[in-house]
Simulated scan of single mutants.
Amino acid sequence: MHPFVFLQLGQDIVQTALSLFSEKGYEATSVDEIARKSGMVKASFYKYFKSKEELMLSTIALVQEDMERELEKLYLNSELSPREKLIQFYVICLERVYQNKMHLLFFSVTLVKSTDKEISQARDKLEITISNRCMDLMIKLYGGEWSDYYYDIIFVIKSMIVGYVRLADPEFFASESQMLAKFFMSITDILVQGMNNPDSHHEIMWKPSMQDNAEPVKPWNRWLEVTSIIQSMHSAIDTLDLHEAVKDDYYSILEKLQAEMSGAVTETAHVKALLFFLGQVTELQDLCEKLRITLKP
């Protein structure tokens, strides 16, 4: 096989996997499904990747290379002001998250399995790289006096980007990216101004110690684990052989559980009651137990 054809087929598998991981979650997607959607038999898949884990590492590497290439061009563009550079940074993030389904890298990989350690480290490195580049642009625009709060602001903006991409209509997305980036710029201005308010005191949620070679902060890891487990529970409910109305009830309970855990205190009686109810379903028992362990302080 010609090297170019081999490379192209490998990239096609990566794109197919990205789509499936985004839709179903990493754990719930099998090699059989990836191969079938890619138009090949399972044995052919292993000509390109040794395992699903190696495939995920390839997707992260592909996204990392793409992001770094785009950000390098942005940094070298001397015609843009610091404000314009930050807006274009948001455009790049919006478009790359949408194009590559990058949010699956942050929400679909469970961190607690030792077999996923290499994946989680690669994913964390990508997330930290993006955050640090954004941090650098913010310092150039707003100064370094309030830099301790910038990671909190980055977390808010990043969550908004991911949230929008999950709900975006693909027919309108391309035309909206510039407008959305300017909107996120306005939100950033408001947040920075709020941090500068001498009458307000703000607790720092995300410590400014996220360097390229540092371990990611624990609250971020915990949040990723919870989000991944919730997604796996949703996928498990999808597969249940139940009437749609009953499934809708389980989805509703899962939404209530997620909403309850968004508060400052997650180990509430309400959370325990919801987990107990969901845990009565055999297919959800292990996931409920995993969530209980994750939520312990």
Rank of each mutant, 00 (worst) to 15 (best):
L105I: 15
F173A: 15
S235C: 02
E27V: 00
R96V: 06
Q8K: 07
V226T: 14
G163S: 04
L291F: 09
L284V: 06
A174L: 08
E72V: 10
A174R: 14
K42I: 13
H201M: 05
D212T: 11
M135R: 01
S177D: 02
S262A: 14
Q280D: 01
R36M: 14
A259C: 08
E53N: 13
R69M: 06
H243Q: 08
M195Y: 14
E127F: 08
F107H: 02
G263T: 07
E283I: 07
I87W: 04
S200K: 15
Y98D: 14
S159K: 05
R166H: 12
Y150T: 08
M210D: 10
K42A: 12
I153R: 05
E118G: 06
F277R: 11
V97D: 07
W220Y: 01
Q15G: 03
Q121K: 12
H202T: 11
Y46K: 09
V226E: 14
M261H: 08
S186D: 07
Q258S: 13
K47E: 03
I87N: 00
F107Y: 09
L141S: 10
E72A: 11
R292F: 11
D248N: 12
S19V: 02
I139L: 12
K158C: 02
L137Y: 05
V165T: 01
I161R: 05
E145S: 05
F4H: 05
T59L: 15
P170K: 10
V165M: 01
M102T: 15
D189V: 15
K272M: 09
A61H: 12
D212N: 11
Q88T: 13
L167E: 15
K140F: 12
D249M: 11
A61T: 10
E84Q: 05
A122Q: 09
S209P: 03
R166P: 12
V109C: 11
P82H: 04
S262I: 03
F21N: 03
E267P: 04
H2A: 06
E79M: 04
K125P: 00
F106L: 15
F89E: 06
Y90W: 07
K50H: 07
E84N: 07
V109M: 13
S78R: 09
M135K: 04
P219E: 02
V156L: 10
A181C: 00
Y250T: 11
D199R: 06
F173S: 13
W220K: 04
C134F: 03
L20N: 00
D152T: 08
H270F: 10
E127A: 10
V192W: 14
E68C: 05
E95H: 09
A17E: 03
W223I: 02
Q211H: 08
Y75R: 12
D116W: 03
E215G: 10
D249I: 13
K113A: 03
T59D: 15
G39V: 13
I139R: 13
L55N: 15
A245R: 08
G143D: 00
E118K: 10
E171C: 01
I87M: 02
P3E: 00
A269K: 08
H270Q: 10
P219A: 00
S228V: 12
R83W: 00
V63P: 05
D249Q: 14
Y142K: 00
S186Q: 02
S232G: 06
L94A: 01
K182H: 14
P3K: 02
M195N: 11
I13N: 06
P198V: 12
P198N: 13
S177T: 00
I229E: 13
N77P: 06
V14R: 14
E203N: 06
M160P: 09
M67L: 12
E176K: 02
T294W: 07
